[in-house]
C-alpha cells in the first residue's frame, strides 16, 4: 500500500488499487522474491503459483524426512523439520500476506506479537524442564501402557497430596483410588464429599488436616458418653462443631480446630441420602 496518503486524498482510493494491479505482469519472478519490488506490485498467478508449488514441495520433503522409523523424534530429524516449517511460515507471511510490501509498522506489530509469543512459549517449556517428552516426577513410573479400543474414559479420583501435618496426624500409605466395587459411601468419601482431602483412612486416603478415620466406627462408640457410634458419626458430618476432637482423644499435640470442618463442608450440598451412605460406609471402619 501507499505510504504517502497526503497526496492520495480520499477519493482516489479505488483508482489507487487498480493501479497497483496494472503492473503485475511486469515484475520478474526473481525480482519479486528477492529484489526491490516497485511499490504496489504484489504478484499474479505465476508468482503465487510458483510459491504454492514451493510450499507443497517443502511439505512433501517434511513428510519424507519422518519416514525412517528409527530417526523419528531424534534431533537429526527435528532440526530440519523446524527449519523447513519456519521457511514455510515466513513465505506465507511475507508473500501471501504481502507483509514484505507493507508499511514497516505492520511488520513491527506482527513480529512483536510473534516473538513475544515464541519467547513466552519457550520460557514456559524450559521452566517445566527441557524440550524432551520424557515423563517428569509425577508421571514417571505411573504411566500405564495403552491397550487399544478402550471405550471408557478413565476416572481420575481427586488426588490429595499429603500436607505437612500440623496436627501431628500420621499419614498412612499412599492413596489408592476408589476401587471399582467401592460402596456408594466410599465413593462419596473419595469424590463428591471431598472428605479424603482432610481425613485419612489407611490404604485409601491420606488427608492430614482432620482426625484419622481408619477405625472411626470403633472410636465413635466411646467418644461422647451416651451417644451411639452411628449418631456420633452422623452428627460429626451434619454438625461438625457439636463435638470437636481434642488432642487427648487422638493422642496428638494439639486440639483440632473448631470451625474448620464447618467451613469446608457447608457448601458441598450433600443430600440426606449421601449422608446416610457416608455413615453406613464409615460404620464399616472398625
Amino acid at each position: 500500500m501507499s505510504s504517502n496518503p497526503g497526496q492520495e486524498g480520499a477519493v482516489a482510493h479505488h483508482e489507487h488499487e487498480s493501479r497497483e494491479h496494472a503492473s503485475h505482469e511486469d515484475a520478474g519472478i526473481g525480482r519479486f522474491f528477492f529484489g526491490h519490488v516497485p511499490e504496489g506490485v504484489h504478484g499474479g498467478l505465476k508468482q503465487y503459483g510458483l510459491l504454492a508449488i514451493f510450499l507443497a514441495i517443502i511439505t512433501f520433503v517434511e513428510f519424507v524426512i519422518i519416514l525412517p522409523e528409527d530417526l523419528r523424534g531424534s534431533s537429526i530429524v527435528i532440526a530440519p523439520l523446524v527449519i523447513l516449517s519456519v521457511i514455510k511460515f515466513f513465505c506465507v507471511v511475507a508473500f501471501f500476506m504481502h507483509l514484505k510490501f507493507e508499511h514497516g509498522l505492520l511488520w513491527q506489530i506482527f513480529v512483536a506479537g510473534l516473538v513475544l509469543g515464541l519467547i513466552v512459549a519457550i520460557a514456559l517449556v524450559l521452566l517445566f524442564g527441557v524440550f524432551r517428552p520424557t515423563p517428569r516426577a509425577f508421571s514417571e513410573g505411573r504411566q500405564q501402557p495403552f491397550v487399544h479400543h478402550v471405550e471408557e474414559a478413565p476416572h481420575y479420583e481427586p488426588l490429595v497430596v499429603p500436607t505437612p501435618a500440623p496436627l501431628g496426624a500420621i499419614a498412612p500409605a499412599p492413596a489408592a483410588g476408589a476401587a471399582a466395587g467401592a460402596s456408594p459411601g466410599q465413593q462419596i468419601f473419595m469424590g463428591a464429599g471431598g472428605c479424603s482431602a482432610c481425613h485419612a483412612i489407611e490404604g485409601l486416603a491420606v488427608g492430614a488436616l482432620g482426625p484419622d478415620l481408619t477405625h472411626i466406627a470403633t472410636v465413635a462408640e466411646s467418644r461422647v458418653p451416651g451417644q451411639s457410634a452411628e449418631d456420633y458419626i452422623r452428627e460429626s458430618i451434619v454438625e461438625p462443631d457439636a463435638y470437636t476432637v481434642t488432642a487427648a482423644d487422638e493422642g496428638i499435640d494439639q486440639d483440632f480446630q473448631q470451625g474448620l470442618m464447618v467451613a469446608t463442608t457447608s457448601s458441598l450440598g450433600l443430600t440426606d441420602e449421601d449422608v446416610d451412605e457416608l455413615v453406613e460406609y464409615l460404620m464399616t471402619l472398625r
Partner: peptide, 10 residues
C-alpha cells in the same frame, strides 16, 4: 508442549 509426554494413561 509442557504436558508433552506427561499423560499417565493412553
Amino acid at each position: 508442549m509442557v504436558y508433552r509426554g506427561q499423560s499417565i494413561v493412553g
